[in-house]
Design a protein around this nucleic acid. Structure first.
Length: 588
RNA sequence: GGCGGCGUAGCUCAGCUGGGUAGAGCGCGCGGUUCAUACCCGCGUAGUCGGGGGUUCAAGUCCCUCCGCCGCUACCA
């Protein structure tokens, strides 16, 4: 389980998902909260001890209802079942049916999408039974307080997890900040009975407010063959989005991180959030070219050269003629905001793309090259400013969907990290500071040659060995840039660290595994310096760590950063400090 | 079985509680442009809105029915 948890965290990072709190049901604090919740509900009478009777399959350890039996046998293993009854605790769901219906009626937006809300209402109206929330003691479930014969069903404690994470029964201030949740999102198959029925009933029983919104998302179907079907592991058509991203990166030549963002874009743009969608790699590629390369990427890459040419790369002052894009910007921001509030993620992106379209049209209409020829400097500079300013807002609006791309756009505009100052107020025309320097880089989304990509996919599908195909031409870097801006440099997080332990890595004679202390934090870093620097000579040394380097596994060692050393292909000297300073100090 | 949803241009889909010549993106056709990643801009193309019947001055939009597809129908986070 620990390994699974680590895997989940790693995937979150790889797909650029951040979180405020990652919680596991095994946390000791959670166990305490669950038991207190259970005890409280038992005291109030919402939980009572009763008897459960049903058809039991011994090998499967599962109860079945009469109607679910297959010719009187277990529907799973086909073996005979026996009429059995056990003692168990029940939650009085039945007492809350009216209140649940009223809550849904009072606030139609409580449960979404709408079709799901209908299902929930139908489910409640057919009559609620009390929910069995415990079973004969098992070692991995949480024990019922004061009753060693029973443990609490996982789904009950899983729901309570939301409260534990919000600080319930631990920190009133934290709870007030996080609860009620603005929105709870889950898969559609666990919406109806758990998240839209028992869960709100539990909250009512505890006297807690309900979430603002409970929303079920759909599934992705594969559409590779004839028709669509649910992606299933057993059918072997499991899609790994990271593999699509890798393929995208290869076939386009973009960075893997950008490709990951592109897949995120596809997933959020392609379907109405909440409904099922069809996932096809070709469709991802298509959107990559149409939306990202042609529309967004191209807008950036036709703006920057113009600025370089006509102002020498400096953001011009807007002047009185600027502001021509103020309306499209305001409209896009407002539509995006409204769509997000409504969980219409696709609609939000559509709104941003309307602004991108307006930007592309604007360049054609204004024709800055003509303004330049005509010597209309004021208009020219206003036009360039408006273009850059619009891109600035596009970066901001796009940042929740594609954080890496947004940062890249802003970097090329000579700005920092959009996430740092993201606020709706910044999505207004005219907030771009004049005088900054743009930093033109490589195209973020190199266009994919779809014919070539298609052939590649076909050979893959035919099961042939991947052809040793020449990498599609990546645009040659122009003259290597010798200058960087302070903003670019500031993206590196350099820190003072002390080597607290160093060890050789078995089977890797060049590799050392270093344990570094940053004061508060301890890190593991792999370094290819074993041949020049025996581990024992390093312990106690103060070194400089690149702390925000993307984590990687090097020779089997998970490495979170790198230390600085002099030398071209071989390390000649380690960078150390000439006097003492606190561990973790920033280096700049 | 019961309840609910879907079926709209070649493709993927918007079209709220009834009303202005049925929309978007992609594709396709024509034209323009050359700042840009053979890109962008403009114009155009097409749909008996699943079939049939009904209500109404007026219906993808309401009612009935038929066909096809899908979901929910409790103790499996």
């Amino acid at each position: 389980m620990d390994r699974k948890s680590a895997e989940f965290r790693a995937v979150f990072e790889q797909v650029h998902c951040s979180f405020d709190r990652f919680i596991r049901t095994t946390e000791p604090e959670h166990v305490r909260v669950v038991q207190r919740v259970f005890a409280r509900l038992r005291d109030s009478g919402d939980v009572y001890r009763g008897r459960y009777e049903g058809w039991y399959c011994l090998p499967c350890e599962t109860y079945f209802l009469e109607k679910d039996l297959l010719e009187g046998s277990c529907p799973d293993c086909k073996r005979p079942v026996t009429r059995t009854q056990t003692e168990a605790y029940f939650f009085r769901t039945s007492a809350y049916a009216d209140r649940l219906l009223r809550a849904i009626e009072d606030r139609p937006s409580l449960i979404g999408p709408e079709s799901r809300r209908n299902e929930v209402v139908a489910f409640i109206k057919q009559g609620l039974q009390d929910a069995c929330i415990s079973r004969a003691a098992s070692e991995w479930d949480i024990p019922v307080p004061d009753d060693p014969t029973q443990t609490i069903y996982v789904w009950f404690d899983a729901l309570v997890n939301y409260l534990t994470a919000a600080g319930y029964l631990q920190d009133a201030e934290q709870l007030a900040a996080w609860w009620p949740a603005g929105v709870q999102v889950m898969a559609k198959d666990i919406l109806v009975r758990f998240h839209a029925t028992i869960w709100p009933a539990m909250l009512m029983a505890l006297g807690l407010p309900l979430p603002e919104r409970i929303f079920a998302h759909g599934y992705w179907l594969t559409g590779d063959g004839e028709g669509e079907r649910k992606i299933s592991k057993s059918a072997g058509d499991l899609v790994n989005p990271l593999e699509t991203a890798e393929e995208l990166a290869q076939v386009s030549g973009c960075k893997t991180e950008v490709a990951v963002d592109a897949v995120r874009y596809f997933l959020l743009r392609e379907v109405t959030f909440g409904l099922d969608g069809v996932y096809r790699t070709e469709a991802v590629m298509q959107r990559f070219n149409d939306d990202l390369a042609n529309d967004l990427g191209n807008l950036l890459n036709r703006t920057l050269p113009l600025v370089e040419r006509f102002t020498g790369g400096t953001v011009p002052a807007p002047g009185p003629a600027a502001g021509a894009l103020a309306d499209p910007i305001a409209t896009a921001a407002e539509r995006t905001r409204a769509a997000l509030a409504d969980l219409d993620l696709s609609g939000a992106l559509t709104a941003v793309w309307q602004l991108i379209g307006a930007g592309n049209r604007f360049i054609d209409e204004r024709a800055p090259w003509d303004l330049h020829k005509a010597g209309k400097t004021v208009e020219l500079e206003a036009t360039l400013y408006d273009m850059l300013d619009a891109l600035r807002v596009v970066g901001l609006l796009v940042s929740p969907f594609m954080p890496v791309v947004a940062r890249e756009i802003w970097a090329q505009l000579g700005l920092g990290d959009p996430a740092v100052q993201a606020s709706w107020g910044d999505c207004t025309a005219g907030r771009l500071a004049a005088g900054g320097r743009i930093v033109r880089g490589q195209p973020i989304f190199p266009r994919i040659d779809l014919r070539r990509a298609g052939a590649r996919a076909q050979s893959r599908r035919a099961g042939q060995a991947p052809q040793p195909q020449e990498r599609p031409r990546v645009p040659e870097p122009e003259a290597p840039r010798t200058e960087v801006t302070t903003d670019e440099f500031a993206r590196l997080d350099l820190r003072v660290a002390e080597v607290v332990a160093a060890a050789r890595v078995e089977g890797k004679d060049r590799l050392l595994q270093l344990t570094l202390s940053l004061g508060e934090e301890t890190r593991t870093v792999a370094a290819g310096i074993a041949q020049q620097f025996p581990p024992e000579t390093l312990v106690g040394k103060r070194v400089v760590l690149v702390a925000n380097l993307k984590p990687a596994k090097i020779g089997g060692v998970p490495s979170h950063g790198m230390i600085l050393a002099a030398g071209e292909s071989q390390p000649l000297a380690i960078v150390t400090l000439d006097r003492d300073c606190p561990l973790g100090s920033k280096v700049r």
